[in-house]
Nucleic acid binder design. Structure first.
Lengths: 223, 223
DNA sequence: ACCTGAACACCGTTCAAGT
DNA sequence: ACCTGAACACCGTTCAAGT
């Protein structure tokens, strides 16, 4: 209505503005670099060259930010390639992808496991896995259970790998009294293997093999 | 040498003194009741009726205290009963015990998974599990891998159960677009099952069954 | 010797002010 | 409109003082 001069801040020039995605990406980089204890609203603001409170224009709270980060990461999981391969190959591919994601962002897995809300970014993977299980011939209840088993196995193993102390294994095990801990002492040298990627694969194979057996059995009954 | 009068504070009467174990027990109770975010040095001191700084007479740091708590809890795991039962029954008993412990102290599992040093309290269980796997006939490398698989499965599943949002499942799943998420929408009603104790048992059965098969195979080769 | 308040260096976040 | 410093209510922990 009035032709008052516009307030001067409307043409305030190119401030350091970011998109929400850029802020989330910077936050993820900070977590990857400095870990959970280094991930601070103040540190992130410093990294971006903005005031701390500016972050609250992109995000309601720190908890909200962590949720956004985990969601963004899990959305990366390669969950397509629907038709090709056996159901077992498809399940394995999806779960290996999730595991690799955990290895690439180890600190994030830890944060995820202490969150109460499962990230929606995992829904695509969940759908795909559930589809694979149903295709295999498992009934719905068994499929849902198997889905929980598989996801929790992968996330649990990834979390354990993420937080494994670098040194840990041989020294402490060899100091144990050999008569009370004969097997651990004997296995001390190769004990770090229990958190290796090969161990992860071994467990995954056990699970998939067992699911295959159950699926065959259920198909026979249904026939 | 000298018979000076003793300083008065030597007979200062019954102050509120605790043993280290009592402090640890109180800390565990606080975590169980109020969760990780309620577990504060100040809160614990208040609960015990002592000054905050008095806690640092029992413990070097809060991290040290958390380590002591998890260690005390995991030491509870029923890891004896060596000889009796098949190797499979013994493995199952030990792992179910660990799972139950996680269910009883859900907040603690979360804290444990974000610790870098595996609690020494788990050594007894590790020894027992490793012994069971060797008895089954698995070679040492496979046994170590299987140990990692089993422990990480149990801890991972327990952590997931501990942090599962109370409501979560059916509503959010039913809101998904049915053409992109047909299986999840169809399974919405029973979806909470994926974190049930029955799912845990199912996964445990899959793993133990697979280990049994591998053990039989390795025994045959060794013969 | 054992306990502890004050103080310090951090947090996340509210609130009002700056442009 | 968008940004932000000051301030608040918390942390864990150091340090010196209390008995």
């Amino acid at each position: 209505v009035s032709s008052e001069p516009e307030p001067p801040w409307l043409k305030s020039g190119p401030r350091a503005r970011y998109t929400r995605d850029e802020v989330i990406a910077a936050a993820l980089a900070l977590i990857d670099r400095d870990g959970p204890e280094g991930f601070t609203m103040r540190a992130l603001a410093g990294e971006l060259g903005i005031g701390v409170m500016t972050l609250y224009g992109y995000v309601r709270s720190k908890e909200d930010m962590v949720a956004a980060i985990t969601d963004a990461v899990f959305r990366e999981v390669h969950a397509d390639a629907d038709g090709e391969g056996t159901w077992e190959a498809r399940l394995r591919a999806g779960l290996q992808d999730l595991h690799q994601l955990g290895r690439r962002h180890p600190h994030l897995v830890t944060l995820t496991l202490s969150q109460s809300h499962a990230p929606p970014g995992l829904f695509r993977l969940r759908e795909r896995l559930l589809g694979g299980l149903r295709d295999a011939g498992l009934d719905q209840e068994t499929s849902v259970r198997a889905l929980g088993v598989l996801l929790n196995y992968v996330l649990g193993f990834s979390a354990a790998q993420a937080n494994a102390a670098p040194i840990e294994s041989p020294e402490r095990l060899r100091e144990l009294p050999p008569d009370a801990f004969p097997h651990l002492v004997a296995a001390a040298d190769g004990y770090a293997e229990h958190l290796s990627d090969e161990s992860f694969e071994y467990g995954l194979n056990l699970l998939l093999r067992g699911l295959g057996t159950d699926a065959r059995r259920q198909r026979k009954v249904a026939r």
